[in-house]
Design a protein around this nucleic acid. Sequence first.
RNA 1: UGACCCAUGGUGUAACGGUAGCACUGCAGAUUUUGGUUCUGCCUGUCUAGGUUCGAAUCCUGGUGGGUCAGCCA
Length: 566
Amino acid sequence: MTEKETNEIREEKKSLNFIEQIVEEDLKSGKHKEIITRFPPEPNGYLHIGHAKSIILNFGLGEKYNGKTNLRFDDTNPVKEDVEYADSILEDVKWLGYKWHGEVRYASDYFEQLYEWAIKLIKDGYAYVDDQSGEEISATRGTPLQPGKESPFRNRSVEENLDLFERMRKGEFKDGEKVLRAKIDMSSPNMHMRDPVMYRIKHAEHHRTGNKWCIYPMYDFTHGQSDYIEGITHSICTLEFENHRPLYDWFLDRIYEEGKTRPRQIEFARLNLSYTVMSKRKLLKLVENGYVSGWDDPRMPTISGLRRRGYTPESLKIFAEKVGVAKRENIIDVGLLEYSVREHLNKTAQRLMTVLDPLKVTITNYPEDKEEMLPAVNNPEDESAGTREVPFSGTLYIEREDFREEANRKFFRLKPGGEVRLRYAYFIKCNEVIKDENGNITELLCTYDPLSKGGKSPDGRKVKGTLHWVSAKHAVDVDVRLYDRLFSDETPDGHKDKDFTEFINPESLSVLKNCKSEPFIKNAVPGDRFQFERKGYFCVDKDSSKDKIIINRTVALRDSRSKKNG
RNA sequence: UGACCCAUGGUGUAACGGUAGCACUGCAGAUUUUGGUUCUGCCUGUCUAGGUUCGAAUCCUGGUGGGUCAGCCA
C-alpha cells in the first residue's frame, strides 16, 4: 500500500462519537473483554425515528465492537402496557435488520430477583415502607429549592418493614395505601435521591405475569439491576435520565458483588426533527383524534410510518450516521432525512415512467395501430439491473406541467413549435394545441422524428428537454398519494400559547386518481419501491387491491428548477 | 434562589493544548437521454469576560444563554 493510499484511508476514517470513545477505552484498558448493550423500550407505544437512532446506536455498537445487544422490555407498569405495542416494537427492530442476543428479555422476568434485593435493602436499613398517601409524599418531597421532610414512617424497625412489605406482596393493602421507599436523603439537592419510591401497589393484570404480582417496581429500582443481571456493560439512555444516574449507581452500590460486570449509564441527546412532533403522548393524540390514519400513517415519524412511506432500513442508518451522537440539544432538519432516503434509493430503486397528471398527446405522423417496444434502463446507477421494454404508440400521456403555451427561455420542456425528447423513445414537436369550450387544454397534436428512435439525436441537434411518457393504450391506472410535512411549523410543539395541532398542514396529503404508469407496475406488490423518473421515489401501499394499485410518494426528487424560475 | 448537563457556520457534527475540518442546506458552474445522479468552486462558525500557557474551540474562574429534575410514568 502506498503512502498516499494509507493517508486516504486515514482521512476517510470517521471520527468516533463520545460513546464509541468510551467503549474503545474500556476495551483497550481491559475493563471489559466484550461489550453488551441493550435497547430497553417500554411497550406502551409505537417506536419513532428517535428510537431508531437509539436502536442503531445500541445495536451498531454491538456489531462494530463484536459485542452483543439485548432487547429488553421495561414492562414495570402494567396499566400502560400492551402486547400490541410489544409486537410492533419487535417488528420494527427486526425490520431495521437487527438480531438481538438470545431471547427477548423482560424486566418482568426479574421481578422475583428484584423483590429479593428489595428485602436485602430493607434488612440493610436502606428501605422502608411508607404509609403516607401519594399526596403526602408529594407534598413532603420539597421543591428543587427547598429540602423535603422525612416521613414519620421512615424509622420503622427492619422487622416491621419486612412484615409490611411481605403483606404488600400478598395483597393485603389497596392501591396507594403503602409504598416501599429507599432511605437516602430528603434534603438532597437531587430530587431523585429524596427517598424515591421503589415499589407501588397496583392490583392490575400484567401483560406477561398476569395476576401474580400486585406490587410493581419503579423504573429506577428496575433498570440498573436489570442491566446488572444481563451483564450490560454500557447502558445508554437519553439526557433526561442524567439526574437519575446517582440513583442508578446508589442501588447498584448496594447489591453489587465483586467480580461481576458493573453497568455504566451513559446519556446522549435524543433526536428532534423539524416539522414534526416526537413524544408518544402527542403521536397518540394525532392517532386518537384522527389527524392521521394510524400509527403507521406515512406522515408519522414512527418507524412503521416511515416504512410505509417507503423509507429503507439502510436509509435510516445513513441518517443516524449523519446525525451523530452527542450531548447537545438538537433539532435536525427533516431535509437531512429526505436526503438520506434519496441517497439510498437513487442507488437501488427500479426506474419507471409514471405520469401523475396526464395530458393526451397524439403523434399525427405515427402509423395508426402501430406499436413498438423500446428498451429502457432500469437503473442508471446499477448496470446489473438491466433493461426493460416499454410500449410506445401514437397516443401517449405526458405530464400536464411539462407543456406550456407561453414559456420563457428557461422553460425547456414542451411548447408550441418546440421540440423535446420522449425518454428512450423519439423527439416530438408540438404543432397544435386543442382546447375545450372552457379553454382548458385537452390534447396536443405532435409529430415525431422516426430517425430519433431511442431518443438519440439523428443529426446531432440539441434537444434540451427530456420528458417521461406513457402509451395511452398500455397505461395502467394507479392512485398516487402525495405526502407533505404534517406540520407547517418547524417546531410545532415549541409554542407556549398554541397547541401543536394548530400547526397541522391541511395539505399534508393529496390523492391523485388515475395516474398513468407503464405496464411494469402491474407486477408490483405492497412495499415495492420505485423511482418514477423526474418525479420522485414511490412505494406501493398495503391498501392496494387487485384492481387498483395505490402508491405513496416517499420523497420528491431534488428539484433545482423550482428554486430558480424555469 | 438548588443540583446536574450543554454551548463550534443556517442545521448537525469533528478537531483530545499546535493551521477550525466534514456533512446537509444555500449560491455559482461543468457533465447529463431524469431540471435526478456525479463533479468543481464559493458563502457562513468557536456565547462572553478574565486567567493559565510560547500557543486555548480545547484547561481554570466568573458571567450569559439553553436543557433536565418536585409521577406511586419510563
